[in-house]
């Protein structure tokens, strides 16, 4: 299958479950001594895909309200500094006062521009940098004790539309999530996010499943992928069904006081996943116990039972239960 993961990518897959059941929680941890963004083996493929989506039609993919101009530059700066620091073999940034030179060796880009002068870049600063990262980026404006979704580039969404959510407050754009509102999760999450400080980014993981290796599961393209969910059989399940994990990061932007929220989406097929028996076993347990409203919200209703059967038939007993020391007793 094209664009599948190498063995290295599988080993570093951000498996989301620490235990055998899944519960809502804020589940957030500090990012220390590691990059905010990830540049992995799918970089070129995913940048190409992002560009083609944005070039075709930006409606529903790109939102940028007028008061987010400063936040756009903040985003460009935060990302360039992060990439140049952690991936210096691919990216360099030279800053001489307001005159900056950015080089992206993978995409063969080299631009000199004036920081804070939009006319010196080929795109708006936000779009310029978003076209060079694998992450979707949402910018939240912090005001009135709330966070508002006032800008974003979203080409790889997990069943949502930034066009629909633009301008909404934190609890409004989380409205479709079952259970969590009653549990007070979003009030608590919001108050946590509002207090995130400059230089102290945080991260959390979110997960669902996707049929076929498809990053773009937006509402806008539903006709193209919705029907796939009825195509899962026990025979094709291992190759077709993917665990989809979002590594989300939250970064306070200094000039605008906005919050940058990045989403890196990773896909792994059940076959790939099953080289680590701890993972298949754990996923089986989580899926088995998942309450029906969450199954429905995550869009798994039509194929969960098939996946459960496949997992139970394809799980080998791990020789060690510790994930780190797991002996990979299967290969692809």
């Amino acid at each position: 299958m094209s664009n599948s993961n190498s063995i290295e990518a599988i080993k570093r897959f951000p498996f989301p479950f620490a235990g055998d059941s899944y519960q809502y929680s804020v589940n957030i941890q500090p990012v220390v001594n590691e990059p905010i963004l990830d540049v992995d083996e799918h970089y070129q493929t995913e940048i190409k895909l992002r560009n083609s989506i944005l070039d075709r039609n930006k409606t529903g993919r790109y939102v940028n309200l007028p008061h987010m101009k400063t936040a756009q530059w903040d985003t460009l700066e935060a990302i360039m500094e992060d990439l140049a620091t952690h991936y210096s073999q691919f990216f360099t940034l030279h800053q001489k006062g307001d005159r900056w030179t950015w080089e992206n060796k993978i995409l063969n880009v080299r631009d000199t521009f004036a920081f804070l002068d939009e006319s010196s870049l080929p795109y708006e600063p936000f779009e310029y940098i978003a076209r060079q990262v694998q992450e979707d980026i949402i910018l939240l404006d912090q005001r009135e004790k709330d966070l508002f979704l006032d800008a974003g580039v979203l080409t790889f969404p997990t069943k949502w539309s930034i066009e629909f959510d633009a301008g909404m407050s934190f609890e409004e754009f989380h409205a479709p999530v079952p259970r969590a509102h009653q549990m007070g999760v979003f009030k608590k999450a919001k108050s946590f996010l509002r207090r995130i400080e400059i230089g102290k980014p945080w991260t959390r993981r979110n997960w669902t499943m996707t049929v076929n290796r498809r990053l773009d599961t937006s509402f806008e393209t539903y006709p193209a992928w919705g029907k796939d969910r009825s195509s899962v059989t026990l025979d094709n399940c291992g190759a077709k069904v993917h665990l989809r994990v979002e590594v989300q990061r939250f970064v306070r932007l200094p000039r605008s006081n906005s919050l940058m929220f990045t989403i890196h989406t990773y896909l792994i097929s059940l076959e790939e996943l099953s080289i680590n028996p701890v993972w298949t076993k754990r996923l089986h347990e989580v899926l088995k116990k998942l309450p029906s409203d969450i199954v429905q919200y995550k869009g798994l209703s039509r194929y969960r039972d098939t996946v459960l059967t496949w997992l139970s038939q394809n799980t080998l007993e791990p020789e060690y239960t510790n994930l780190e020391s797991t002996v990979y007793s299967r290969s692809l």
Binding site: S25, V26, N27, I28, Q29, P30, K188, S191, F192, R195, W202
Partner: peptide, 10 residues
């Protein structure tokens, strides 16, 4: 545990 600063509830 998760955040260790009294913010996440873990």
């Amino acid at each position: 545990y998760s955040c260790r600063i009294g913010g996440c509830g873990a």
